[in-house]
Amino acid sequence: MAYIVIGQLHDEHALKILNKLKARNVDAYLLQTHDFPRKVKFSFSPNDGDGSLTLSCGTFINLSDIKAVFWRSFSGVSDEDTRATFMTEQGVAAKDSMACLRTWFYLKNGTKWINGWEAFQHHQEKPYQLQKIKNLGVKIPQTYVGNNLKDIKDIYKKLDQSIFKPVYGGAHTEMLTGSHLEAGRVEAALAKSPITVQEFILGTNIRTYVVGERVISIELKSELADFRVDDDAKLFVIDTPELIKDQAKKIAKELYLNWTAIDWRRDKSSEYYFLEANPSPMFIGFEKQSGISMSDYIVDYMLEH
């Protein structure tokens, strides 16, 4: 049996999981997806449903022999270029390569994915993610997604405090102010990209880690709208209320997540509001501050039969 970490050589999180696996005396390998197809070979037969990978190091692995995959990051494929169109030779090559990789991602073949393609697709469509979680009966903040300035102004007036952030992600959260909406450039900006406007919940940041059946929560104390940009943010391990533990597991299942960090805002009456569930959260900073080895929990889950 083999274990795969999808990530990059310079990523300390990918390397930590890889080295922890090797320390358990199992065959573990790093796969950088941008090595395919130049350095990595893929074979698949729809007739028998199995195939193989030959890694850049020369190791041959049957897909059905891959026990578990830890997906830290996806780095595209060798000939992928965002400027290439489908009709160019480079564009066609990239599409062909992605079709092969996605076939592997969807196959499963008894492989445990932490996490799989579906989880990452759900994370990219965050408005859909929020809608699905609300339908589970989980509280979410009042949220608007779009580029209609009138509607944005309406929700801004309706809410006591609000934040704005990209729909897809990739930038930090900021408090929304009237000056943002009065600036002459706002309509030009909205013509290029919609935004998410969301109710700012007065309270504190809670992050709940879920790996398999384990649920661990921390409180992150920060004065900023986005604790990720606060170098002075402090974390404290807290007890997870039974309702939140149950909701966290339901959220993970709904979003195809075997491993995740769920971000909440807890208001002053201890109500929890779901913000998002990350399919590939960082954990090294958490380990250093908490003393809890999340990486061992992840490896434990990968090795479970």
Rank of each mutant, 00 (worst) to 15 (best):
Y3D: 10
I6S: 08
I6E: 05
D11Q: 08
K16H: 09
K16F: 01
K22I: 12
R24W: 02
L31N: 08
H34P: 00
D35L: 06
P37H: 08
R38H: 11
V40Y: 08
V40P: 07
S45H: 11
D48F: 13
G49T: 05
S52D: 05
L53N: 04
I61T: 01
N62Y: 12
N62D: 12
L63C: 11
K67H: 14
V69P: 03
W71P: 00
R72E: 05
S73H: 07
G76C: 09
G76T: 08
A84S: 15
M87L: 13
A93F: 03
D96M: 14
M98V: 12
L101Y: 06
R102A: 07
R102L: 09
T103S: 12
F105Y: 12
Y106R: 13
N109R: 13
W113S: 03
Y128V: 11
G137Y: 11
I140E: 07
P141N: 08
V145P: 00
I152L: 05
K157P: 00
Q161D: 12
I163C: 06
I163K: 00
F164M: 09
V167Y: 02
T173Q: 04
M175H: 09
T177R: 11
R185S: 14
V186E: 02
L190C: 07
E199D: 04
L202T: 11
N205Y: 02
V215E: 09
A225I: 06
V229D: 12
V229Y: 08
F236W: 01
I238Y: 04
D239F: 00
K250G: 05
L255H: 04
L257W: 09
I262Q: 08
I262E: 07
D263G: 02
K268C: 03
Y272R: 01
E276Q: 07
P279Q: 10
P281V: 09
G285A: 11
G285K: 12
K288L: 13
I292D: 04
M294Q: 11
I298Q: 07
M302C: 09
